[in-house]
């Protein structure tokens, strides 16, 4: 039952993170939390596991099932941070990051910046199996996008850009994002801040948030989505309880532009999350 609780929490957190927020690199989110000031592209990896509690509002219909505008949800989640690299190939999984899972190849390393070819699934599917709120709607599939990720380190600042295209034959859309992160140290606390913007082409928003004539109903009237922007702001703090345990917390807000709000599948122009966790570092 406990595992179910965690699994549900993680699953909901994933849905929320993946579907509505701008893509944010696990790399960037992870690096800024650790207070690093350069790329880590060495062979090998690390693994962390912990438990966390999140309180959030989600502007997307059906996430979770029965979700209403401004409704606050509280869930436990399994906090996993893991990265493994062998030569140029790497895989990353950061459950508190906005990007969750990324795989790719790191093919350039400067002193302060790196270039990666990455692949990820930034948009989760929407179907009746996921939520009864989607009953009567056509199934939206998970996608898989690939492209370039550039990360630059300037002292305590990290800048990251993504340029991704759909390679899963799901929507053929394009996604571009730019994020700026910074960390500060106050005694043994590492405080971080992230701001970012993500552009989604019309193909993506149309696939997930338009309502076709064939699926239109009184509840979900016909709607044609256009390309849209989303913005994220986050502040958080990390504290080493000892050499193996780390406490983390964050507050995150995502704003959608007004055009996205017009979709019957969007309830609000923003979502928010507060999360805390304690993780064991192997």
């Amino acid at each position: 039952m406990l595992m179910n609780c965690w699994r549900t929490g993680l699953s909901i957190a994933w849905l929320w993170l993946v579907i509505i927020v701008p893509v944010l690199a696990g790399d960037l989110s992870s690096d800024v939390r650790k207070g690093t000031s350069g790329p880590d592209n060495s062979n090998g990896g690390y693994f962390e596991v912990g438990v966390g509690l999140s309180t959030y509002t989600n502007p997307v219909v059906g996430m979770p099932e029965g979700n209403e505008k401004g409704e606050v949800h509280t869930e436990g989640f399994l906090d996993i941070s893991a990265r493994y690299q062998y030569r140029c190939l790497f895989a990353e999984l950061f459950s508190q990051s906005l990007e969750q899972f990324t795989m790719g190849c790191n093919f350039y390393n400067g002193n302060n910046w790196s270039l990666d070819w990455v692949g990820m699934a930034p948009h989760d599917g929407m179907s009746e199996e996921e939520s009864n709120d989607y009953r009567g709607l056509n199934k939206r599939r998970d996608d898989f996008m690939s492209g370039l990720r550039t990360t630059a380190y300037f002292g305590n600042y990290i800048v990251q850009m993504h340029a991704l295209v759909d390679i899963s034959d799901t929507h053929h859309g394009e996604l571009y994002s730019l994020k700026l992160a910074r960390h500060w140290q106050y005694r043994n606390w590492t405080v971080h801040g992230i701001v970012g913007a993500t552009y989604r082409s019309q193909q993506i928003t149309d696939y997930y948030f338009s309502i076709d004539e064939s699926e239109a109903s009184e509840k979900y009237p016909q709607f044609d989505a256009r390309a849209s922007m989303a913005y994220v702001a986050e502040v958080g703090a990390s504290y080493p309880l000892n050499e193996k345990w780390v406490f983390r917390s964050l507050i995150r807000r995502i704003n959608l532009d007004s055009r996205a709000m017009e979709s019957p599948l969007i309830l609000d122009d923003h979502g928010q999350m507060i999360a805390t966790s304690v993780s064991y570092v192997f």
Binding site: G38, D40, N41, S42, R87, N109, P240
Partner: peptide, 18 residues
């Protein structure tokens, strides 16, 4: 003085494929 995360290892080489 101890720490949770060790310092990053930076590679000298730049371009690489495998």
């Amino acid at each position: 003085v101890a720490w949770v995360y060790k310092a990053n290892t930076r590679r000298k080489t730049h371009w690489r494929l495998f």
